[in-house]
Simulated scan of single mutants.
Amino acid sequence: MISLLAIEEVLNEFGITERHEVKYAIQFYVPCLKQYVYINKQAGTKASGFVIHPRFEFYTNELTSIDGVETTGVFNHKSSMRKFPKRLNRGLEPIPFGIPFGFFTKDAMRTFIKKLSRIKPCYLRMPEDEIKDAQNSGEFDALTQTEVEQVIKGRRGQGKYREGLVKLWGKCSVTGCKQFELLRASHKKPWRDSSNEERLDPHNGLLLTPNLDALFDSGMISFDANGGVLISKSLDLETVEALALGLNTKLSMMPVETAKYLKYHREFIFLCG
């Protein structure tokens, strides 16, 4: 693997505009990616010197198909990676995580960065994959079987969680559509990043039509502190017009309990760039 210094030299070639170093990691903002990334100072000889946002997980196989690019195959967890979302990992408190990579040559890293810059990442995972991860990591160990079933149903948009959303919102949170069989139960703070309590909290959710659910879940839209829509620059103008997204698009109400969850979505899921 190339050295951490060599990784930073390549990042400089791509015009990094921010650099912040702490004990175990160095944070960078890379304009062409419109993303924060990290150098893992504890990588050693492992393929984990360069860590990117977990929203790119879906593209890991595509990125490691580049000659000279490898990954450890497991998430990298560090409290200092504060621009990344959090998840439980052995300890009692959630910790920021990302996808680690290593490079055999600088050219391999340059190709990697160029390819990454062309990806419009969708922060989506299949529910069954997330449920399996939670089971394997012991996140359900302290729950009763009934509680486990409710949490799993919540990830599938069913059961107690969906019932709570229907009671709270009574319609699509944006459009006002009341045909409930069409509406999807979405999490503001993603299920994978939430505690079991947060996973079942209806204030952590929205009832959305399928198109809005896909946009919100992938970070293509979010909502400000007043409930007004925020539209990612990753969406082209034609798409925005076709989906009828505009300045008047907003949440039908803003319960105070939803604020912390929407703040999390804006900070860690929304593709503002």
Rank of each mutant, 00 (worst) to 15 (best):
S194P: 00
D193T: 07
T105S: 08
W169I: 02
L4M: 03
A244Q: 05
A108F: 12
A25F: 10
M81W: 13
T111C: 02
E257S: 11
N89R: 06
A242K: 11
P121E: 05
H187G: 06
F268V: 11
A214Q: 04
T258A: 00
G170T: 03
I152D: 06
C172K: 08
G138V: 14
R19V: 06
L271V: 11
P121Y: 15
E128Y: 08
F223N: 03
Y161R: 02
Q150T: 01
I131M: 06
L4V: 04
S65H: 09
L235I: 02
D236S: 02
D141M: 08
L235P: 09
L245P: 07
T258V: 12
L207T: 08
T45L: 01
E9Y: 12
G154L: 03
F84E: 04
V148I: 07
V174L: 01
K106N: 05
Q35E: 14
R19E: 13
G159V: 13
K178T: 15
R266A: 12
H53K: 03
F50L: 12
A214S: 13
G154A: 09
K78I: 09
M253T: 10
F58P: 00
G91R: 11
S218K: 11
Q150R: 04
L168Q: 04
P121F: 14
R199H: 14
C122P: 00
N226Y: 15
F28E: 14
K78V: 08
P255K: 07
C172E: 01
L124Y: 10
M220P: 04
T71G: 04
K46W: 01
F14C: 13
E70R: 12
G246S: 04
V151D: 01
L165Q: 07
N136E: 14
Y29I: 11
Y24A: 10
L230H: 00
Y59G: 01
E267C: 08
Y29L: 09
R90G: 00
C177G: 03
M81I: 05
N226I: 12
P255H: 12
G205S: 02
R90C: 01
Y29K: 01
F104Q: 04
L165G: 07
P31F: 14
T239C: 10
W191D: 00
K41W: 14
E241D: 06
E62F: 14
F270V: 11
L212S: 05
F270P: 02
R266I: 15
T249V: 07
T144G: 15
L92A: 15
K83E: 13
G176T: 15
L63S: 06
M109W: 10
R110H: 12
V166N: 02
R156T: 00
Q35G: 08
V51F: 05
K160G: 09
S80K: 02
Q150C: 04
C172R: 05
C172W: 06
M253E: 07
I269V: 15
T144A: 11
K78H: 07
H20T: 13
K167M: 09
P100D: 10
Y264E: 04
S252Y: 01
K250D: 06
A108V: 14
Y38N: 02
P100F: 14
K263E: 14
H203E: 02
L143F: 15
N76T: 12
E181P: 00
I131N: 03
E13Q: 10
R19H: 07
A259D: 02
T258F: 11
G228F: 07
S232C: 09
